[in-house]
Amino acid sequence: MKIKEIIVVEGRDDTARVKMAVDADTIETNGSAIGDTVIQQVRLAQETRGVIILTDPDFPGEKIRKTIAEAVPGCKHAFLPKHLAKAKRDKGIGVEHASLDSIRECLAHVHEEMEESESDITLDDLFDAGLIGGEASKRRRERLGVLLNIGYTNAKQLQKRLHMFQITKHDFIAALKTVMQEEADE
């Protein structure tokens, strides 16, 4: 699988793993303290070939994703679910621990960042669905993020990400039905 866009990852181990999974070029941020040089590289990549941000599914990875997306608008986003990025024997979480198939799968379902638009998915919809403020909310958001390929979000980020990636109410409801059916089957 050849990827036209340049993939932004956190470090060397992520680059090695991505290159084992797909034919692609990468830019490494080398941690969450992203310097001007990296931002300039990402800007140039976005202008010439496009960019896909693929960071670890953890707090530092989300911080890197947000920093780059704010500095370089229009990036695409690939999300690797936490459960697919865990190392054996609890040695960490990250792109470098994911299977090659998991990396290929998340790169096959990238989302293009759009200007946030008004969505027909309201805050009330999120409350009514038990995605905010309930005992099972976090687990439901995690599963919804996997099904919609938008990554895990906290309650505050969920509506923003649904709008940013223009998830339709139809797709939201379909994914939510799957989440609820899985809960009922447990």
Rank of each mutant, 00 (worst) to 15 (best):
M1R: 13
M1T: 13
K2R: 14
I3R: 05
K4G: 02
E5A: 14
I7Q: 01
V8A: 04
V9K: 05
V9N: 07
G11D: 09
R12H: 09
D13K: 14
D14Y: 11
R17F: 00
V18A: 08
V18K: 02
M20E: 15
D23K: 15
A24F: 02
A24Y: 03
A24R: 00
D25N: 14
D25Y: 01
T26D: 03
T29K: 02
N30P: 03
A33L: 05
A33D: 12
G35E: 05
D36E: 14
D36G: 12
T37I: 13
T37C: 09
V38A: 12
Q41G: 02
V42Q: 04
V42P: 09
R43H: 12
L44Y: 06
A45S: 12
Q46T: 08
T48Q: 15
T48G: 10
I53R: 02
L54N: 10
T55Q: 01
D56F: 07
D58R: 04
F59D: 13
F59C: 08
P60A: 08
P60M: 07
G61W: 04
K63R: 14
I64W: 03
R65G: 07
K66S: 14
A71E: 04
A71M: 03
V72K: 02
P73W: 01
G74R: 11
G74C: 12
K76C: 06
A78R: 01
A78K: 02
F79C: 11
K82C: 00
H83K: 11
A87M: 06
R89N: 15
K91E: 15
I93D: 01
G94N: 04
G94W: 00
V95Y: 05
E96A: 13
E96S: 13
H97V: 03
H97I: 04
A98L: 01
S99I: 05
S102N: 13
S102A: 15
S102Q: 01
I103G: 08
R104S: 10
E105P: 07
A108W: 00
V110F: 01
E112L: 10
E116D: 12
E116M: 08
E118M: 11
S119E: 10
T122A: 07
L123I: 13
D124N: 10
L126E: 07
F127E: 14
F127N: 11
F127P: 04
L131D: 02
L131W: 02
I132V: 15
E135N: 11
S137A: 15
K138E: 12
R140Q: 06
R141G: 10
E142R: 14
R143M: 05
R143S: 08
V146N: 06
N149E: 03
N149C: 10
I150G: 08
T153D: 09
T153W: 01
K156P: 08
Q157H: 06
Q157M: 12
R161T: 11
L162A: 03
M164E: 12
M164D: 00
F165I: 12
Q166W: 00
I167T: 14
T168F: 00
D171G: 03
F172V: 09
A174N: 12
L176T: 04
K177R: 13
K177Y: 01
T178C: 13
V179H: 00
M180N: 15
